[in-house]
Protein backbone atom coordinates (compact mmCIF):
# COMPACT_ATOMS: atom_id res chain seq x y z
CA UNK A 1 0.00 0.00 0.00
CA UNK A 2 1.06 3.57 -0.58
CA UNK A 3 2.62 5.17 2.49
CA UNK A 4 2.04 8.76 3.56
CA UNK A 5 4.11 10.41 6.24
CA UNK A 6 1.85 11.97 8.86
CA UNK A 7 3.61 14.92 10.55
CA UNK A 8 2.15 13.73 13.87
CA UNK A 9 2.13 9.94 13.64
CA UNK A 10 4.85 9.11 11.13
CA UNK A 11 4.57 6.90 8.06
CA UNK A 12 1.20 5.19 7.72
CA UNK A 13 -0.85 3.39 5.08
CA UNK A 14 -2.63 5.89 2.87
CA UNK A 15 -5.93 4.21 3.81
CA UNK A 16 -5.63 5.88 7.24
CA UNK A 17 -5.94 9.30 5.61
CA UNK A 18 -8.72 11.29 4.05
CA UNK A 19 -8.14 13.69 1.19
CA UNK A 20 -9.38 17.20 1.94
CA UNK A 21 -8.77 19.02 -1.33
CA UNK A 22 -6.80 22.07 -2.38
CA UNK A 23 -5.52 24.63 0.09
CA UNK A 24 -7.34 27.78 -0.99
CA UNK A 25 -7.34 31.16 0.74
CA UNK A 26 -10.74 31.59 2.36
CA UNK A 27 -12.46 34.91 1.84
CA UNK A 28 -13.87 36.74 4.85
CA UNK A 29 -17.40 35.29 5.03
CA UNK A 30 -18.82 38.52 6.44
CA UNK A 31 -17.38 40.69 3.70
CA UNK A 32 -17.38 38.52 0.60
CA UNK A 33 -20.07 38.32 -2.09
CA UNK A 34 -22.19 35.21 -2.62
CA UNK A 35 -20.46 34.71 -5.94
CA UNK A 36 -16.94 34.84 -4.49
CA UNK A 37 -17.98 32.56 -1.66
CA UNK A 38 -19.37 30.00 -4.13
CA UNK A 39 -16.20 30.21 -6.18
CA UNK A 40 -14.09 29.54 -3.12
CA UNK A 41 -16.38 26.72 -2.12
CA UNK A 42 -16.69 24.93 -5.45
CA UNK A 43 -14.16 25.97 -8.07
CA UNK A 44 -10.98 23.94 -8.22
CA UNK A 45 -7.65 24.46 -9.91
CA UNK A 46 -7.55 20.68 -10.28
CA UNK A 47 -3.95 20.97 -11.38
CA UNK A 48 -2.18 18.19 -13.23
CA UNK A 49 1.15 18.51 -11.46
CA UNK A 50 2.32 19.60 -8.03
CA UNK A 51 -0.53 20.59 -5.70
CA UNK A 52 -0.83 21.65 -2.08
CA UNK A 53 -3.72 19.98 -0.27
CA UNK A 54 -5.40 19.34 3.03
CA UNK A 55 -5.21 15.79 4.36
CA UNK A 56 -6.52 14.29 7.58
CA UNK A 57 -5.15 11.38 9.57
CA UNK A 58 -8.47 9.83 10.57
CA UNK A 59 -7.55 7.89 13.75
CA UNK A 60 -6.21 11.10 15.31
CA UNK A 61 -8.39 13.61 13.39
CA UNK A 62 -5.16 15.48 12.63
CA UNK A 63 -5.38 17.85 9.67
CA UNK A 64 -2.16 18.75 7.89
CA UNK A 65 -0.85 19.83 4.50
CA UNK A 66 0.68 17.63 1.84
CA UNK A 67 2.41 18.51 -1.41
CA UNK A 68 1.77 15.94 -4.04
CA UNK A 69 2.31 15.36 -7.74
CA UNK A 70 -1.05 14.42 -9.25
CA UNK A 71 0.52 13.06 -12.43
CA UNK A 72 3.12 10.73 -10.94
CA UNK A 73 1.21 9.92 -7.72
CA UNK A 74 4.19 10.94 -5.57
CA UNK A 75 3.89 12.54 -2.16
CA UNK A 76 6.61 15.19 -2.03
CA UNK A 77 6.26 16.43 1.52
CA UNK A 78 3.86 16.76 4.43
CA UNK A 79 3.88 19.30 7.23
CA UNK A 80 1.62 20.65 9.97
CA UNK A 81 -0.87 23.32 8.89
CA UNK A 82 0.81 25.61 11.39
CA UNK A 83 3.75 25.95 9.01
CA UNK A 84 1.46 27.88 6.65
CA UNK A 85 -1.19 29.34 8.91
CA UNK A 86 0.78 31.22 11.55
CA UNK A 87 -1.99 32.95 13.41
CA UNK A 88 -5.57 32.34 14.34
CA UNK A 89 -8.07 33.94 11.95
CA UNK A 90 -11.16 35.39 13.58
CA UNK A 91 -14.15 36.53 11.62
CA UNK A 92 -16.56 39.09 12.91
CA UNK A 93 -20.16 37.90 12.78
CA UNK A 94 -22.11 39.54 10.00
CA UNK A 95 -24.30 42.32 11.29
CA UNK A 96 -27.97 41.31 11.50
CA UNK A 97 -30.05 42.95 8.84
CA UNK A 98 -32.58 45.41 10.22
CA UNK A 99 -36.05 44.54 9.06
Amino acid sequence: MKIMNCPLNGPRNISEFVWGGEVKPMPDPAATSDQDWAEWLFLENNEAGIVREWWCHVPTSFWFIAERNTVTDEILKTYPAGDVFKSRVDFAAKAEKQS
Binding site: K2, S15, N46, A48, T70, V71, D73
Partner: peptide
Protein backbone atom coordinates in the same frame (compact mmCIF):
# COMPACT_ATOMS: atom_id res chain seq x y z
CA UNK B 1 -10.11 6.22 -5.76
CA UNK B 2 -9.77 7.95 -2.39
CA UNK B 3 -7.87 10.93 -3.78
CA UNK B 4 -7.44 12.91 -6.99
CA UNK B 5 -4.93 11.92 -9.61
CA UNK B 6 -4.23 12.37 -13.31
CA UNK B 7 -3.24 8.77 -13.73
CA UNK B 8 -4.71 5.51 -14.90
CA UNK B 9 -2.61 3.30 -12.65
CA UNK B 10 -4.23 0.39 -10.84
CA UNK B 11 -3.78 -0.46 -7.18
CA UNK B 12 -3.87 -3.67 -5.18
CA UNK B 13 -5.82 -1.98 -2.37
Amino acid sequence: DPYGLYSTRSTLD
